[in-house]
Write a protein that binds this DNA or RNA. Structure first.
Length: 588
RNA sequence: GCGCUCGUAGCUCAGUGGAUAGAGCCCCCGCCUUCUAAGCGGGUUGUCGUUGGUUCGAAUCCAACCGAGCGCGCCA
């Protein structure tokens, strides 16, 4: 990477300067050199502010330090005219660099060499990570909030895989306890009603209109098969069937959103396998629990929680926390190096409890990372869409996907920082213009494809009707691709230093070249959405280049070089979009 | 009341202690005989919630306050 090459160049210069005793008491470069992109063009293509940071330790004015570093850089062979056109020291102590073509050529060649692996890293070192997300109750439709968790979790999983982790994605199915028995009561009532029986609907139940569409097909398929059931058997049977129906609809919908789980972990299985009772014994053995007022409590307060928590109620039933303890013990036992839970922010009160559980079981709490996603407000033309679960006016995830499409849904949910609440504008997401970043990025990718088609396919002139021969054969293009990988000089003809186009080209290549860095930042900060914005920037830089420069020209070596630039751009856009889970269309 | 998250342009948001705080939307003005105008260029927009502190330097770090959302059950 260009910025890495520059950083080591600067570090080397500082090392040499200190050896010569030119930088006061400093011996070597005490801090990593950060390379930045200046905003103003007169500040060059890249800049380094290290002299400012060294001022304190070197006990010298920053501008003086910068001048000395610059002197030593100029003595370095790699800083020759081929790589760095010129450098300048600017107050208060920046060193600004204007790039020549050498590093740019190498950067493009590197992209071609790595291909779809360009940007992939090995910071995961093959470690096993489990990402648990969505984990919605099987008691109704998924809504946009679930969609956010789903998209975020899936993007994060893609990103983890891209940086070298072995990723497993899991959906925890809350298929035990009250909510399921309540689902059974509601389903049983609706089932009977659909058969013409006048029965009351459970008052505290789920809204009728949120369940009706699941019951209708069930009735169609089973007819009056269960009508003879009694009031105990009926809810049980219908609850089970409805649960399976809902889970299947959730699975299908998520798959349509390109969210696919490796495992669906059933809460019920924790009970049937005695995992819950055995984790309670474990707490007892480790003296982390006690009985009081007929209930079993976890000594959570001494483990960092604000108070102790109930594990088993006086009724004998275990709490959600106890079940979660069994679940997370199971996760740890499956040998993961890292556990990531993605929860809705309304569950943040549970975080200390679960952390306490992990500590109580003498497990490594640092391995468990809980990421909270804030709410999604739906709006239409700036008007908030009010949602009420009670009134049944919830807009489902499926409705949003139907309306704005899978790609736009994914883009908008992926782009933001999960800890910020977002406003999802349905009208904006539907638009097919620059206002809609999802389309803008896809358009840039399609445009690259259009140029490549133009180069190798014959064109029919719209006006004359004459068929024009392509400038290249497919075979030639394939041969070029080999050259792009092996000889960076192939790109030289693309660059015209001094020309206005050169500014656009430098910006584009530098942007492409920084992809691995963006990937690293995104992975470390758990913000895959950064790559969505990155892709937008790449698209923007491409459009600017496209606007001022033709790719296909009469000069074959220029055409070859510029096609290589277009291919590299297409590759980087595709790599970024793949992590976000948005398609990269060949034409639009 | 306590805890968590957040507060940047009219709106949606970037911004890893450094140069004059940036994008997009909105509004106005230009640009299609040439590889996709679903595009490009230009113009207007700020007490970075407030007040202090640390620093050569703070939107960024610290404290207090103000404001918003969420959470504080033997619910799940």
């Amino acid at each position: 990477m260009i910025s890495e090459r520059l950083a080591s160049l600067v570090e080397r210069a500082i090392d040499r300067a200190t050896k010569d005793g030119k930088l006061g008491p400093l011996t070597g470069c005490p801090i990593p050199v950060l390379v930045e992109r200046p905003r103003l063009p007169e500040h060059g293509d890249l800049a380094v502010g290290t002299a400012l940071k060294l001022a304190g330790q070197a006990k010298m004015p920053p501008i003086k330090i910068a001048e000395i570093i610059a002197e030593y850089i100029e003595k370095d062979e790699e800083a020759g005219k081929h790589n760095i056109e010129r450098l300048a020291v600017a107050p208060p102590g920046f060193i600004n660099f204007h790039l020549s073509t050498g590093w740019l050529e190498a950067a493009l060649s590197n992209i071609h060499e790595k291909g779809e692996k360009f940007g992939a890293l090995n910071i995961g070192e093959g470690k096993k990570v489990l990402v648990e997300y969505v984990s919605a109750n099987p008691t109704g439709d998924l809504h946009i909030g679930h969609g956010r968790g789903a998209v975020y979790g899936s993007c994060l999983s893609n990103l983890f895989a891209f940086v070298g982790f072995s990723v497993e994605q899991e959906f925890y199915v809350n298929d035990a306890g009250v909510q399921i028995s309540q689902l059974g009561e509601c389903a049983w009532a609706l089932y009977q009603r659909l058969q013409g029986r006048e029965v009351p609907y459970p008052e505290e139940g789920y809204p009728e209109n949120s369940l009706m569409h699941f019951l209708e097909p069930i009735v169609k398929e089973n007819g009056d098969k269960y009508l003879s059931c009694d009031s105990e058997e009926g809810p049980k049977k219908l609850g089970e069937i409805t649960k399976m129906t809902i889970m299947e609809s959730q699975r299908k919908l998520l798959s349509r959103l390109h969210v696919n789980f490796d495992t669906w972990f059933s809460e019920t299985s924790l009970h049937t396998s005695d995992a819950v009772s055995s984790v309670l014994k474990e707490f007892e053995k480790k003296q982390k629990s006690y009985e009081s007022e007929g209930a079993l409590w976890l000594k959570a307060k001494e483990l960092g929680d604000e108070r102790d928590r109930v594990l088993r109620k006086s009724t004998g039933a275990t709490t959600y926390l106890a079940n979660d303890a069994a679940y997370h013990l199971d996760k740890f036992n499956r040998g993961f190096d890292q556990l990531v839970n993605i929860w809705g922010a309304d569950h943040h009160g549970q975080v200390p409890g679960l952390k306490a559980v992990v500590k109580a079981l003498d497990l490594d709490a640092d391995k468990l990372e809980i990421i909270l996603t804030q709410i999604v407000n739906l709006s239409r033309e700036g008007q908030m869409v009010r949602m009420s679960k009670r009134a049944g006016t919830v807009v489902t995830l499926e409705e949003v996907m139907d309306e704005v499409g899978v790609d736009a849904t994914r883009y908008y949910l992926a782009e933001s920082n999960p800890q910020n609440p977002i406003n999802f504008d349905l009208e904006l997401a539907k638009r097919t213009s620059r206002e809609n970043p999802a389309f803008y990025i896809q358009y840039a990718h399609a445009r690259c494809c259009a140029i490549l088609r133009r180069a190798t396919e014959e064109q029919v002139n719209q006006e004359s009707g004459v068929t024009e021969k392509p400038v290249l054969t497919q075979e030639q293009l394939e041969a070029y691709k080999v050259d792009y990988k092996n000889s960076p000089q192939a790109f030289r003809a693309a660059f015209e230093p001094g020309h206005e186009v050169y500014q656009c080209q430098k910006a584009l290549v530098q942007k492409l070249d920084s992809f691995p860095d963006e990937v690293k930042e995104a992975a470390l900060s758990r913000l895959p959405g950064r790559l969505a914005r990155y892709a937008y920037d790449v698209a923007n830089d491409l459009q600017k280049f496209y606007e001022v420069s033709r790719v296909i020209t009469d000069d074959l070596s220029v055409t070859k070089a510029r096609l290589g630039l277009i291919l590299a751009t297409k590759q980087v856009l595709a790599n970024a979009l793949k992590i976000i889970g948005v398609s990269a269309p060949e034409r639009m």
